[in-house]
Design a protein around this nucleic acid. Structure first.
Lengths: 198, 198
DNA sequence: GTCTATAGGTAGATAGAC
DNA sequence: GTCTATCTACCTATAGAC
């Protein structure tokens, strides 16, 4: 059910507010009352739009995947060597992650909950699709010689995930010591050169 | 109050249990009752040892810092170029992080809460000390030519934090798709070569 | 679709007996 | 130090009027 940007529905307003709160305070740190209050309604009214808190959380993260997976697939199946497609995937992930930052943070911060709890299985399935795309390109890059062979695709994938999560999360700064994160270009450069064949 | 490993006190037992639960379920996902139950006492009895849930959380994370900061300082002030000392710091961080994995996860997963909430200020102070050590070595490496000058210390610090958090957290695997994280040696190699001068 | 009212449960924390 | 009992507040969710 795509919603025109020109006319936000109450439902979409609730999803957006929930995303903001889930992203900042986490699933357990966010209450139905908080979400409803931000939108100016009573908590009971929220149940006219969503069956449960879990369903609302799933909708928030689903929105992120619906935006992220097509972009990631396009980068993965684009032209160039494995390393070049990998760079495009990193750029795409950071870009979409920043555009849907709240949902992305909710996903990464509450991942252990998503992994543990049965109702969140749909989210695990979508995450697996993303993982498959990354693995595919990493294997291709090792085979075409554009990525170093002594770092396994699994290890490389893992480093890339950490970097993207850190980049979007920007959780290291606190206003006092650490300023801005690197530009995406810098991040891609460092990672790709670290993963390039010797 | 150091506790001999041979004779764990009830207090230390509670801190350990709290660390495990905070690390897995997060601050808001862990209740005083859960912690007490794991240790076989009633929730009310826990308040004979700790003034509040917040104080207990602080104690958990403090234990990590007390182990981590001396090791980090030793690596930062050791011999070698900036890049070599940086490698030692990464290795030290991963090692201590894994040895105190629960507390480390509690710290990194609930960082936005720690940053936001006043009672957690002591933890912010210790974290600032760690940040200073990293920044110092990164600046040194840029000056002695062992680290590339076109990546700012702030950007490099940020990438390193993300990598260490990912390495200790190991949050990307789910049993189905992504296997083990890279070895620390692999991680250090990729990061250092990505940050090396061209 | 939003409201009031409330059910049924759990949260962190305290009082006081032992 | 641990217990039982309990407080107040909040939680998710439902019932039913409008």
């Amino acid at each position: 059910m795509p919603v025109p940007a020109s006319e936000p529905t109450r439902r979409s307003e609730l999803v957006a507010a929930a995303g903001r709160l889930f992203g900042e305070h986490g699933y357990h740190g966010t209450s139905i009352r908080m979400i409803a209050e931000v939108c100016g309604i009573r908590s009971a009214s929220l149940y006219s739009h969503f069956a449960s808190k879990e369903q609302l959380f799933i909708e928030v993260v689903d929105d992120y995947f619906h935006a992220s997976l097509p972009a990631l697939a396009a980068a993965a199946h684009g032209p160039g060597t494995g390393a070049e497609r990998l760079a495009a995937m990193i750029e795409s992930s950071v870009e979409v992650g920043l555009a849907h930052r709240d949902a992305f943070l909710a996903l990464s911060n509450d991942w252990s909950l998503i992994r543990r709890s049965a109702p969140f299985e749909p989210l695990r399935v979508e995450r697996d699709r993303a993982t498959s795309l990354w693995s595919e390109v990493l294997r291709g890059g090792t085979e075409d010689g554009s990525l170093r062979p002594d770092v396994s695709p699994a290890a490389a994938l893992w480093i890339l995930y950490s970097a993207v999560i850190g980049m979007v999360g920007e959780r290291h700064g606190d206003g006092t010591g650490v300023p801005a994160p690197p530009s995406t270009a810098t991040l891609v450069q460092v990672l790709l050169e670290g993963l390039a064949p010797r």
